[in-house]
Design a protein around this nucleic acid. Structure first.
Length: 200
DNA sequence: ATGACGATTTACT
DNA sequence: GTAAATCGTCATA
């Protein structure tokens, strides 16, 4: 996996189809195919954590070099995982919103606390916080090197034809005015692991 | 020190 | 469809 330093708008659609791999302390391998992402463009993007050049302990990771992880905590209970991209200091990243689980499905169910409920595999990682819960991604993986690292990394996947992608507004950024409507979300058309599908 | 607010999820009416 | 959960982060003072 190289070329993670490209602009977020370019990287985001290319990440779809890539495999995200998490290796736990005990060696267990959890993985899945990325099916949904969102691009956050930096200081001019009102919906972005680095809007206005905001530099705080939390956002510092977004200014790092492409290919590192930006993991942040929100709503008092959820973690979200991003791939930092662009040039150093740009403050851009791609939020990974959903993956199709491949390896370690039972362990993911356990992590999600849905063993008894038998939550269907396709929905275990259908959402940015679900994905982090299932893969045990938390602040300890902030700034992890997604290319050289061995706890959390990306693997190239089969090319996904542009025609198989859909594009639309990002989720949960209603307060961002025009930026809320800018189509910076990409997902695999009709895929069962996508977090939400827009109404007709 | 304080208060408002989340790049969400879940349960419930 | 609506509401609650839950607390770190950040702006303000």
């Amino acid at each position: 996996m190289k070329a993670l330093s490209r602009p977020a708008e370019e990287l985001a659609p290319r990440l779809i189809g890539c495999r995200l791999v998490r290796v736990l302390e005990d060696g267990t391998r959890l993985s899945g195919r990325i099916v949904e992402v969102e691009a956050y463009l930096g200081e001019h993007d009102r919906a972005c954590h680095t809007f206005g050049g905001r530099r705080t302990p939390r956002t510092e990771a977004m200014y790092a070099r492409g290919g590192l992880a930006y993991v942040y905590f929100t709503y008092g209970m959820h973690w979200c995982f991003n791939v930092v991209c662009g040039k150093v200091g740009e403050g851009t990243a791609v939020l990974v919103r959903a993956i199709l689980p491949e390896e370690g499905v039972e362990r993911m169910r356990a992590n999600r606390g849905t063993v008894g409920r038998r939550e269907r595999a396709e929905r275990l990682c259908a959402g940015p916080a679900r994905l982090c819960q299932a893969l045990v991604i938390d602040g300890g993986l902030n700034l992890e090197d997604l290319v050289q690292g061995n706890r959390l990394f990306l693997e190239a996947g089969a090319r996904v034809p542009e025609a198989d992608l859909e594009r639309g507004a990002r989720i949960g950024v209603e307060q961002a005015g025009a930026w809320a409507r800018t189509p910076l979300r990409w997902w695999l058309r009709g895929h069962p692991s996508v977090s939400r599908v827009p109404r007709e």
